[in-house]
Simulated scan of single mutants.
Amino acid sequence: MSDVYADPSDPGPATPDTSDWTWVVSRPCPDCGLDPDDVRPDGVTEILLDAKSRYAAVLARSDVRARPSAGVWSPLEYSAHARDVCDVMRGRLEQILDGDGAAVRFANWDQDATAVEKAYWRADPDVLRGELEAAFDAAAEAFARPTGEQLSWSGIRSDGSTFTAQTLGRYFVHDVLHHLWDVRG
C-alpha cells in the first residue's frame, strides 16, 4: 500500500464506480474469482459470517487508513461501505419477502454519495468494527430466511435491474467478497 494520505479529514474524492456489476449474478468475476454458481442460497449466511471476521481483521491493520492510490478507497472506507451494503441488501431482501411474491421496487442507493455523506475516511476503526459486525449479523440472519418459492420472488432496482431473492444473495456476496479482495483481506 502507498503512504497514508496527509489529512485524513479530507483525502480527496474517490473515483466514483459507475460500472454495472449485475453480470456477477450469472458469471464468474475475473478479478476476485467468485463463481456465482458456487453461492447456494443456504450458504449465503455462512459466507457473510466468514466475511464479517475477515473485515474485523482488516480494521485491525495498521494501514487501515492508507489509500493504495489516489481516488481509491482505503481498507477503512471499503469496510464502511461493506457495513452499509449489508444494511441495504438486508433491507432489499426484507422488502422482497414482505412483498409476498409481488415484484417490489427498491429505492435508489448512491454508494458514492453515501461515502461522502458519512465521511467514510473519518470513521473510527474500533467503532466501525462493532457497527460492521452487527450489520453482517443482521444480514446473515435475514438471508437465512428465504426458502423454496421465496427465492424466486423479485425486486427491481431503480435502474431497472431485476433481482430475485436468490440472485440478490449472489450479488451481495460478490460485493463484500470482492471488496475483501480489493483490500487483500
Results as ranks from 00 to 15, higher is better:
residue 36 P to V: 05
residue 152 S to F: 06
residue 130 G to E: 00
residue 44 V to Y: 03
residue 9 S to H: 04
residue 136 F to D: 02
residue 68 P to V: 01
residue 94 E to S: 11
residue 169 G to C: 00
residue 140 A to W: 10
residue 133 E to G: 11
residue 104 V to T: 14
residue 10 D to W: 05
residue 29 C to G: 09
residue 20 D to C: 03
residue 156 I to H: 04
residue 147 T to N: 10
residue 176 V to R: 05
residue 141 E to T: 14
residue 47 I to E: 02
residue 123 A to S: 15
residue 59 L to R: 00
residue 106 F to A: 01
residue 94 E to N: 13
residue 78 Y to R: 04
residue 179 H to N: 02
residue 89 M to S: 08
residue 47 I to L: 11
residue 83 R to P: 02
residue 108 N to E: 13
residue 41 P to R: 06
residue 86 C to T: 08
residue 119 A to I: 02
residue 153 W to A: 01
residue 158 S to P: 08
residue 74 S to N: 11
residue 174 H to S: 04
residue 126 D to A: 11
residue 183 V to R: 05
residue 150 Q to N: 09
residue 106 F to Y: 07
residue 22 T to M: 01
residue 118 K to E: 11
residue 161 S to Q: 13
residue 39 V to K: 02
residue 137 D to T: 13
residue 38 D to M: 12
residue 44 V to I: 08
residue 127 V to G: 10
residue 154 S to F: 05
residue 179 H to W: 06
residue 178 H to I: 08
residue 167 T to V: 02
residue 25 V to Y: 02
residue 8 P to N: 08
residue 61 R to E: 03
residue 144 A to T: 13
residue 124 D to P: 07
residue 45 T to R: 15
residue 27 R to C: 09
residue 27 R to M: 08
residue 28 P to E: 12
residue 83 R to I: 05
residue 121 W to L: 07
residue 5 Y to G: 10
residue 135 A to G: 10
residue 83 R to A: 14
residue 176 V to L: 03
residue 145 R to Q: 09
residue 54 R to H: 12
residue 79 S to C: 12
residue 91 G to M: 00
residue 12 G to L: 04
residue 15 T to R: 14
residue 36 P to N: 07
residue 60 A to S: 15
residue 78 Y to C: 15
residue 115 A to N: 02
residue 87 D to I: 14
residue 1 M to P: 10
residue 55 Y to W: 12
residue 2 S to P: 01
residue 53 S to V: 07
residue 105 R to S: 12
residue 93 L to C: 04
residue 39 V to C: 00
residue 177 L to S: 12
residue 142 A to M: 01
residue 173 V to Y: 07
residue 97 L to D: 09
residue 17 D to H: 12
residue 74 S to Y: 03
residue 38 D to S: 15
residue 139 A to S: 07
residue 140 A to E: 09
residue 37 D to Q: 14
residue 46 E to W: 09
residue 48 L to V: 15
residue 51 A to V: 07
residue 38 D to G: 14
residue 135 A to C: 12
residue 143 F to L: 00
residue 54 R to F: 06
residue 171 Y to S: 07
residue 62 S to A: 15
residue 150 Q to M: 10
residue 65 R to D: 14
residue 54 R to I: 08
residue 133 E to K: 13
residue 162 T to R: 03
residue 9 S to F: 10
residue 58 V to G: 05
residue 7 D to I: 04
residue 15 T to I: 15
residue 93 L to R: 09
residue 77 E to R: 09
residue 108 N to C: 11
residue 175 D to S: 06
residue 184 R to A: 12
residue 67 R to H: 04
residue 47 I to V: 15
residue 69 S to L: 13
residue 26 S to C: 03
residue 67 R to G: 03
residue 89 M to R: 15
residue 94 E to W: 03
residue 59 L to F: 01
residue 100 D to G: 14
residue 55 Y to Q: 11
residue 92 R to S: 05
residue 105 R to A: 15
residue 85 V to Q: 06
residue 185 G to Y: 05
residue 67 R to Y: 04
residue 58 V to L: 11
residue 43 G to S: 14
residue 95 Q to I: 10
residue 159 D to C: 11
residue 19 S to D: 10
residue 121 W to V: 03
residue 120 Y to W: 06
residue 46 E to S: 13
residue 113 A to P: 00
residue 144 A to I: 11
residue 177 L to T: 15
residue 18 T to C: 14
residue 64 V to A: 01
residue 5 Y to I: 13
residue 145 R to D: 12
residue 77 E to W: 00
residue 15 T to G: 07
residue 166 Q to I: 00
residue 102 A to K: 13
residue 161 S to A: 11
residue 156 I to L: 02
residue 149 E to N: 08
